[in-house]
Amino acid sequence: MTERLVGLPVSSPLLTIAMVILVAALLLALVRIVRGPTIPDRVIALDLTASLVVGLLLLLGAVLQLLAIVDIAIVLALIAFLGTVAFASLIERRTRE
């Protein structure tokens, strides 16, 4: 299979606008992380932050025509999922004691 590792960047204004919107959503999620009243609020905001960063990475890979960034995004999503599960079990176990 012939596959370019690095190609010419795609200049689509909609992709750029989508990335700007994702950065705005990232800021809103960060506000919830800072002032979330309980720990689960912060954890769910961290989860959304991780998936926003994954979306940003995917759009960056689409703009730069880089397939390797998609791999990075998948690994980041896996780590974020494991972190969320670990936080959930931590909250549950700390309650039971």
Partner: peptide, 27 residues
Amino acid sequence: LVTGLLAFSGALLMLIAAVGLLRMPDF
């Protein structure tokens, strides 16, 4: 155009998710 619209609507949905995360009254 199709991919741009897909990415734009996806980013808009994630912005809606972030606004809901910020504005909803309950965990």
